[in-house]
Design a protein around this nucleic acid. Structure first.
Lengths: 233, 233
DNA sequence: GTGACATATAAGTCTGACTTTTTGTTCCTG
DNA sequence: CAGGAACAAAAAGTCAGACTTATATGTCAC
């Protein structure tokens, strides 16, 4: 699912990335390229490439004569999808999930408002299609099908906003929503009120009522935040 | 200022990164590692490291037998500070500036609201200190001094929000504000109304009035958007 | 036209030697 | 004893060359 086996250095990253983001090597820790290369049984060139990637994510800093030092969390590129995946897979998953949900609550209402102004007719159609898909699968433990439409819905909203920065958060939202049904407890069918809200957002966007689209989406994200508070108060 | 000369591969990136983000190599273009290595007069190992970094930014994709292909803009990691800098330095600077300002208008009000709830007393003090610094330098063409406090102010707000995703946007905001005074036309002294708003935000945060902090900050960001519309309608 | 097979190509990997920067120590001088 | 200059060691950085592997594409038989 992730960037995965894209070459040997990718395999190294699949192990080293999660380890660093999980805090196995606390900030300030010093790693040596040669030692790592030995440990992972790869050549130094491959290990150097892996270090370069970690460096570009601001997870580590490589300095001569001292080695590869782990940077403090505050400096990490927390918007890097790869970093997000690593952190979501690790120990501070709850913390990360909260951060991302707060981010959603800031972004999505504005994005929905912009979508109401900029969405094409095809995007409106896809919006209602997915909203209806959510309704159709909102009862009877069809969580998987529901999720597909939920993710698609939010992705369309973000894309239709016309802002590339918003659009790029589609993957993040997808990750959050998917994680919610997979890892988090979600035995019950989704909240009927939330489903209705999605339908109404689709309406508002289609009608170009940006104010209403914004407010309704705010309700959705507030709901997501409350849901988080209930699960992990 | 940027990641800069951090090694030979960094110098290569300083040229290749801006070139790609500027669209010199349109999406789908195919580059060959060996040719690039020759062109930049570096060894293949160095060029490979550079390619790996570009790959981690989702700017390019490296595949066997075909080469290094430039990915479509929609897939770029537009939140990567390095990518942002490259794009701000390039041709679509206005477009990028608008995207980022819209992003600010979504994030900062929420961040200010959270700051009103979570800010420590030291953060409150720094906030008022910077707000007063803005007032002190708001007249008499002391734009440089004004900018320092403006950047610091917004950085503190984002940090004080307690959300790491928000905090990480401090650099982005700094880049936008700095660029506004440097590249964009900003002969005049800053808008007195905006200065007042900053002072009031500091007040609201100190008093824990999150609603007011949010609304006031929204006014600030709306002002920034309008300013953009005036400059590039 | 379709499928199996061969081939060329460019990335991927490994190794070893060498260079450069930086840190920490040593030792000299005031 | 303080301060600084010279030195040595350590680790990343760089390079060159040989080899491996995947894969797009062309070829040939059917």
């Amino acid at each position: 699912m992730s960037t995965a086996g894209r070459g040997l250095h990718g395999q190294v990253l699949d192990t080293l990335g999660p380890a660093i983001t999980a805090g196995d090597y606390p900030p300030g820790s010093v790693l040596r390229t040669d030692e790592l290369a030995q440990r992972f049984d790869v050549s130094r060139s491959v290990m150097r490439e892996a270090v370069r990637v970690l460096e570009s994510m601001h997870l580590v800093e490589s300095r001569r004569r001292v080695g590869v030092t782990v940077r403090p969390r505050a400096e990490w590129n927390v918007y890097d999808p790869q970093v997000i995946r690593w952190r979501l897979a690790g120990a501070d998953r709850p913390h990360q999930l909260r951060s991302l949900t707060v981010l959603r609550s800031a972004i999505e209402p504005i994005a929905a408002g912009l979508a109401a102004r900029n969405a094409t007719s095809e995007q409106c159609a896809e919006l209602t299609r997915n909203a209806l898909g959510m309704v159709a699968n909102s009862r009877g433990h069809k969580l998987a099908e529901y999720l597909v439409h939920d993710v698609a819905f939010h992705r369309v909203v973000l894309t239709a906003s016309g802002n590339e920065m918003f659009a790029r958060l589609g993957d993040v939202v997808a990750e959050v929503l998917t994680g919610r049904t997979e890892h988090e407890v979600m035995f019950e069918d989704p909240d009927p009120a939330a489903v209705t809200l999605h339908v109404q957002v689709a309406e508002a966007v289609r009608e170009g009522d940006w104010r209403r689209a914004e407010d309704l989406t705010r309700e959705i994200t507030v709901g997501a935040l409350q849901e988080l508070d209930i699960l992990a108060p």
